[in-house]
Every structure is written in structure tokens, then in C-alpha cells.
């Protein structure tokens, strides 16, 4: 081989002398710290992705009109089909098409822009287009600006994927269940809360697992806006020690380990909560 590479695993323990900086802390701790940030980014982003994504997914399954009661509003004849006068001064507006449209536009936008570009939009562009005070808050005053920007970006991005999974889950439930639930007098909220969602979530465990692992892996993009997560720490060790591959190997092992554990755990969960007689949507 033309190029020499001297493997030296001891760099992870930082026993190599470093003429410039000395041993700050064993690089091993850098990896632990980076791993901690990776988990922190991924789990916080998942909370957003799961809750907001579920909401988006549900909105996209709504079909019948949804009436919003607005008091003291004069109905305009133009939107007759979506406005009803209640008679006591208030009107009811059909916002179903609006909610449905909003969710669709949301999913379209967030799925069709590369995540890295979205990250830059949140980090570089957003603080400059809002008011000066809000911009300063985003950049300086809120705690851990880089971290929360990355979390928001990853969460909102993955929400579009979770939303699609939830929609697919709800749509895969036979209409009969829906009608049966309405027939026993449940309100629409109850239909979703007690019948549709509990079934849908069980069906979509595999795609949700893959979305969660997606967040976990995509959290590495946070390094581009200065979050020192696992991949960034790996790069940093490389820069300090010039032992590229030891650090990369350590990070790779960690990523694979977590993925394996999550997949294993979710398979057990899936088996536990499976509804007898129903097959899951299947791993993608």
C-alpha cells in the first residue's frame, strides 16, 4: 500500500502526547459526551415529531366538515357553502378544507426540501427575517440555541414522515370500525381517541421505528450548525489526534449498537401489542 496509516487505538484514551494542547480529557469522554448530545437531540426531536406528526396525520384523514363556532361575525354570502348561521348571533365556519389543506401543504413542503437545507433555513435565515428582538432571542438569548434549532428542525421534518405513517395507519382500518364507533354514539374526537388511533398506532409500529431511527441518524446533521454530537466529536478527535479511523470506528459501533437495540426492543413491543387477527403494515 502506498500510504501508511498507523493504527493507534490508544488515542481514544489519550495517552499520545500532544505537543500543542496536552491531554485535555481522554478522547473517550468526548465520544461519550457526543453520544449524549446525539441521544438528547434525537429524543427531544422525536417528542415533536411524534406529537406534531400525529396531529398532521390525523388532519389529513379528516373528511367530513369541521365546524368552528365564531361569535359575532356577519356571514358573507360568498362562502355560503362553508358558513352556517346559528341564529343567536354566532356563525359556524367549516374549517375542514383549511385544516386538511394545511396538513397537505405542510407534508409537501417538509418532504421536498433536503433536511440539510432546512437546517440552514432554521439556523441562518429564520433569525434574520423575523423581528430584531425575536432574532436575537433565537440566536443568543434562548438557552442552547444551536441545540434547540436542531431539535425543532429535525422534529418538524420528521413530523411530515410520521404524519404520513399515521395517515396510512388510520386509512388502513376498515371503514366498518369507523361506522360502528359512530353508531354507538361516540363523538368524532372519541372515535379517534378510543377506536382509530389505538389500532392505527399498533399497526404502524414498524414505520414509526424506522422514523425514530431516521431521527437518530439524521441528528448527525446537527453538526453543520455547531452541535457537537457524536459525528462532530468524531471529527474533532480526528482533528486533534489525526487518527481518523479509530474515532470513526468507535462512532460506527455506537450507531449500530443503538440501532440494533431499538430494533430489537420494538420487535418485542410489536409482538406484545399486536392485535390478534390483524397483520401489521410490515417493515418497510
Amino acid at each position: 500500500m502506498e500510504f501508511s496509516y498507523n493504527w493507534d487505538w490508544s488515542v481514544l484514551l489519550c495517552t499520545v502526547e500532544d505537543v500543542e494542547i496536552g491531554c485535555i480529557a481522554p478522547y473517550f469522554y468526548w465520544i461519550v459526551e457526543g453520544f449524549g448530545w446525539t441521544i438528547a437531540v434525537a429524543s427531544a426531536a422525536w417528542v415533536i415529531a411524534f406529537s406534531w406528526g400525529s396531529f398532521i396525520g390525523i388532519l389529513r384523514t379528516l373528511e367530513a366538515p369541521i365546524w368552528l363556532v365564531v361569535p359575532f361575525l356577519k356571514p358573507s354570502m360568498k362562502y355560503k357553502s362553508s358558513v352556517i348561521e346559528t341564529g343567536n348571533g354566532a356563525v359556524m365556519i367549516n374549517i375542514g378544507w383549511f385544516l386538511h389543506g394545511f396538513a397537505t401543504v405542510y407534508v409537501t413542503i417538509f418532504r421536498n426540501i433536503p433536511l440539510l437545507v432546512q437546517m440552514f433555513l432554521w439556523y441562518f435565515v429564520l433569525p434574520e427575517v423575523v423581528s430584531k428582538e425575536a432574532g436575537m432571542w433565537l440566536k443568543r438569548e434562548m438557552p442552547l440555541p444551536e441545540y434547540w434549532t436542531a431539535v425543532a428542525c429535525l422534529g418538524l421534518y420528521t413530523a411530515s414522515r410520521v404524519g404520513e405513517a399515521v395517515r396510512a395507519g388510520i386509512n388502513s382500518i376498515t371503514q366498518g370500525q369507523h361506522y360502528a364507533a359512530m353508531a354507538i354514539g361516540l363523538t368524532r374526537v372519541q372515535v379517534y381517541r378510543c377506536v382509530l388511533l389505538p389500532v392505527a398506532y399498533r399497526i404502524i409500529i414498524p414505520p414509526l421505528t424506522s422514523d425514530f431511527l431516521g431521527i437518530f441518524k439524521n441528528s448527525s446533521l446537527a453538526l453543520t450548525i455547531g452541535v457537537l454530537e457524536l459525528t462532530a466529536m468524531t471529527r474533532q478527535i480526528d482533528e486533534y489526534s489525526y487518527q481518523t479511523f479509530e474515532a470513526f470506528t468507535a462512532a460506527t459501533v455506537l450507531y449500530i449498537l443503538v440501532t440494533a437495540i431499538v430494533m430489537f426492543a420494538m420487535r418485542i413491543v410489536e409482538g406484545r401489542v399486536a392485535i390478534p387477527g390483524m397483520i401489521s403494515l410490515g417493515a418497510k
Binding site: E2, F3, Y5, V19, E20, Y242
Partner: peptide
């Protein structure tokens, strides 16, 4: 600044022209 040393060490580049500090670690 992050890739230059590795690219030099693995033989991708034959010279690096920029603003690189010559130090003993490197």
C-alpha cells in the same frame, strides 16, 4: 480546515495551498 490533513495523509492531494499553520503536531 477539517479535511486538509486527512486528504494530504491519504494521498488525495499533492500539495495544499491555503493558510495552514506549520506546527509540530501536524
Amino acid at each position: 480546515s477539517q479535511t486538509r490533513i486527512a486528504l494530504m495523509a491519504n494521498g488525495t492531494i499533492d500539495m495544499e495551498c491555503g493558510s495552514t499553520t506549520n506546527n509540530l503536531t501536524r
